[in-house]
Design a protein around this nucleic acid. Structure first.
Lengths: 193, 193
DNA sequence: TCCAAATCACTACGTCTGGAGTACTTTAGA
DNA sequence: TCTAAAGTACTCCAGACGTAGTGATTTGGA
C-alpha cells in the first residue's frame, strides 16, 4: 500500500469526478486511474478495496463542499436579518453550480449509503453534526428564526439542489424562488415564535 | 424479442426493485431475471439493451407512484383549507414509506438522467407536466395558494423525500415538520397573495 | 560527499469473474 | 399438429483486478 498523501488525495478527488460523471456504476479503480491521469493499477495500490475508496470519498467530500469562510464573514458584517439568510441560501446554490460534480457525488453517496451500513453511519453522523452546526450558527449569530426555521430551509434547499442538479429545466428562476422561500419561512425578527 | 406484456411489466417492476436494492451498478439483465423469478436470459429476450430497459422503467415508474384517487376524492370532499393541503403532503410521505423501492428507483433514475440525454428529456417532460398538473389541481380546486405556493411545497417535499429515504435519522418528527411547512408556506385563504 | 536501502512510479501481464447472448429443448395453447 | 413462448445450458468476451518486475528518486547514515 503506497503512502503518498498528495496522490491519495488526488485519487479521491478523481473518484468524486468519476462518481459524478459516470455514476456509482462507473466507479472502478481503472476509471479513477484514468481520471486522475495516473498509470493503471495505481488506485489498486492505494486502496485495498472499492469500499474503502468509497469511504474515503465520503469522508473528504464534506471538506470539499464546506462553505467559504470569507462569505460567512462578509454576511455577518451586515445586519442579521432576512436578507442575510437569503444571501446564505444563494451562496449555497452558487456553490452547487460551481462544484456540480461534488454535489452530484454527494447524491450518489447518499444512495450508496442506503446499501452500506458503515457509510450510512458515517454519513448520518456528519450530516446531523452539520445540521446542528447550522442551527447553532443561525441562532447564536442572531439571525431571525429558530431550529425549525433552519430545518425547513434545510429540506427546501436539499430539494432545490436535487432538482437543479438533475432536472434544472423544471423550475424557473431559482433565485426568486429562494427569496420567496426565505420570506415565507424566516420570521421578520429574531427570537422564539 | 418476446411479446408477453404481462411478463414485460413484471420484468420492469423487478428492475425497479433491483434499482432500489442494488443501485444502478447492480442493474443487469441477470439481476432482473433473478428478481423477477424467471430463468436467466429472459430479460435479454425482452429488451434489446440495458438502456432500453432503463427507459421503460422511467416510463412506468410514474404510473406506479401515482397518487391514490380515493385519497384525492376524500380530501376534496372536505373543506379546501390548509389542513387539506397538509393531508395531501402527509399522503405523499406515506406513499414514500409504502413504496420505498419505487421512490429510491426514481432517485436512481434522476441520476441516470444526468448521463442519458433521452432519459433526461423524457423525465423533464414528465416532471414538468406533473408539476403543472399539481398547480392546476391546486388552484382549480380552490386550495389556498398560487403556483409559487405549490412550487415551494414541491421543492420542500422533494428534499424531505430524499432525506427520509437516505438519512432518515437526521430529521425528527417529519409529520410535525410537514405541518409547520404548510403553516408557513400556504396562506390561510385562497386567492392571489 | 557517497553509498545503500527503501520507497514509489510505472509497465505489462495473467487471471478471473460475471454478464451477454443464443442455440436448443420443452411446454402449452389453438 | 403447429406455433410461440418458456425454460435450459452453453460459449464467448470484455473489463477489471492485482501484482511482479523494473527503473527512478529520495532518505539516512557514515
Amino acid at each position: 500500500m503506497r503512502k503518498n498523501e498528495d496522490r491519495r488525495r488526488a485519487l479521491v478527488d478523481a473518484a468524486v469526478d468519476v462518481l459524478a460523471t459516470e455514476g456509482a456504476r462507473g466507479l472502478t479503480f481503472r476509471a479513477v486511474d484514468t481520471a486522475a491521469g495516473v498509470p493503471a493499477g495505481t488506485a489498486s495500490n492505494y486502496f485495498p478495496s472499492r469500499d474503502e475508496l468509497l469511504s474515503q470519498v465520503g469522508a473528504h467530500i464534506h471538506v470539499r463542499l464546506a462553505p467559504d469562510p470569507t462569505v460567512v464573514a462578509r454576511t455577518l458584517a451586515a445586519p442579521r436579518d432576512r436578507a442575510a439568510v437569503a444571501r446564505f441560501m444563494h451562496d449555497i446554490l452558487d456553490r452547487v453550480t460551481a462544484d456540480r460534480a461534488g454535489y452530484l457525488a454527494l447524491l450518489e453517496l447518499r444512495l450508496e449509503a442506503t446499501r452500506r451500513p458503515d457509510l450510512h453511519r458515517t454519513f448520518t453522523a456528519t450530516m446531523r453534526a452539520q445540521l446542528d452546526d447550522s442551527v447553532a450558527f443561525h441562532v447564536d449569530s442572531g439571525l431571525p428564526g429558530d431550529r425549525r426555521t433552519v430545518e425547513l430551509l434545510y429540506i427546501a434547499m436539499t430539494g432545490l439542489i436535487v432538482e437543479s442538479l438533475t432536472l434544472p429545466e423544471i423550475l424557473g428562476d431559482t433565485r426568486a424562488l429562494i427569496d420567496d422561500l426565505v420570506d415565507q419561512v424566516v420570521p421578520l425578527v429574531a427570537g422564539p415564535r
